[in-house]
Design a protein around this nucleic acid. Structure first.
Lengths: 249, 249
DNA sequence: CCATCATTTGCAATAATTTGCAATATTGCA
DNA sequence: TGCAATATTGCAAATTATTGCAAATGATGG
């Protein structure tokens, strides 16, 4: 049995039952519990499930418990959000992805801004809806449980029909050679379409996400126009991105 | 049983009932009271609930930040939501409107339900997204700031293309002669389309909304199949609705 | 075709966690 | 106060995690 095949079966089991036990899987797949443990560890590292003692749980099962928890690295994220605000101006059509940084941006946008926003993210949309002078359009589709964004062909096809002035993308991994990447293909599909649709693309990322890559590529580095981090634009960490032709803010 | 799984179940129980007892949990989860106590201790340390002698309380109940006072007539609304659950079964296509009652319903739906939901409400969608075995499709469109639902021609046209088995509508005004009404025309347009699309229509309303009418009509009374209130089905207030041919729950 | 290297897998020894029980302390309440 | 219910603590048994290692497997390049 191939490792990938085994992991795919594990994921299916997790999605159906919400929980899996080492013992069950090891019997069902005829491998040792060590192997199962290692598989679960890998899947957990990719963020596809939550590993717990004795087995693993599906993400949705666990997720509702850390609602209301503090946003990780909030200070950095709100600093990034503040730096992104000047990119927006009245009359623009703006596309915003999901993620804690972009939610924070949506929250702190100036009330007087008159722009039109498209987003697939429920949480971003809720924040944007508080701004009286801007219009928010939520792109409809099937909801991805993990990311709380709408996904699927319908989303992509709506994105094909619009031409936003600016696209604001939050990302988990950016690398100066590879570009931006993610591990959830549903998210990748949507972000790809967002970037292709847009005139300009700005990536928001806290510095620890720099020089990192995951399995699936969203866009090469030269599709990106702006990179916003909490660091000073002169920081040496950002050198490679400048060299690649990105405007670092 | 996995520890995290148990704790997730405890949290769910706490969120639904607002209070749990050692004895109940220990019986339901088949572990000793010591274990329950330790679990509650851990959850309390993480700030997810408030431990009291003999059990635990939901944090929102304690600090009444979210439900205790935030939602008007929460008790009535959750009672209505509980009565609505049996209308749903596996494999159904269900349409859900916005409103605090329907959000509550989305929150307490059984985890094991396998249904497909369409909704224009962001808050309902967020709750539905926590249910691992159901699919949620958010109908896209421009967001109405007040109601936090998507509205507009796009929403209506999507609704024309689906044929749900059941439509669950929360309403602010229902009258036995006039039907259901509202004052926000954007909301009315969407709810009209929802009702027309659906096979069966259930209206959820707390009793003080009965025998009330507002400016714009959503649907006449005979478009409605079920009426769910917090009252006993035999309550005299509900007489006129029964006479009108509605099944009162 | 073979040697070599990296990856994967199972195993064993050890460490850490979880759980129920029992002894003891504390609390709420009449 | 005194009693009954609940909490706390320490402990031992069972389960699970971690680590290092060696054998098996498969890929790579000469």
């Amino acid at each position: 049995m191939l490792k990938k095949e085994r992991q795919a079966l594990i994921m299916r089991e997790v999605n159906i039952r919400n929980k899996v036990l080492h013992a069950d899987l090891s019997k069902k797949l005829a491998v040792s519990e060590d192997t199962i443990r290692r598989d679960l560890q890998e899947l957990a590292d990719e963020g596809k499930l939550v590993k717990v003692r004795g087995g693993a749980l599906s993400k949705s099962f666990q997720t509702n418990s850390y609602r209301g928890a503090e946003i990780y690295k909030y200070q950095e994220k709100t600093a990034i959000a503040r730096k992104a605000v000047p990119l927006l101006s009245n009359g623009m059509l703006v596309l915003i992805s999901g993620g804690t940084t972009t939610i924070e941006l949506a929250r702190i946008l100036p009330q007087e801004l008159e722009a039109t926003f498209y987003t697939p993210s429920l949480l971003v949309a809720l924040q944007l809806a508080e701004h009286p002078n801007s219009d928010t359009i939520l792109i409809g589709g099937r909801i991805s449980r993990n990311a709380k964004i709408t996904t699927g062909g319908e989303v992509v096809s709506i994105l094909r029909d619009i031409r936003p002035d600016l696209c604001l993308i939050g990302t988990n991994s950016i690398d100066a050679r590879i570009g931006i990447t993610d591990s959830d293909w549903e998210v990748v599909d949507v972000k790809k379409a967002m970037i292709q649709a847009s005139e300009k693309v700005a990536v928001l990322a806290i510095s620890e996400k720099l020089d990192n890559a995951q399995k699936i590529r969203i866009a090469p580095i030269n599709d990106i126009d702006y990179l916003i981090t909490e660091l000073e634009p002169g920081d040496p960490l950002l050198g490679p991105y400048k060299t690649a032709g990105i405007q670092v803010i």
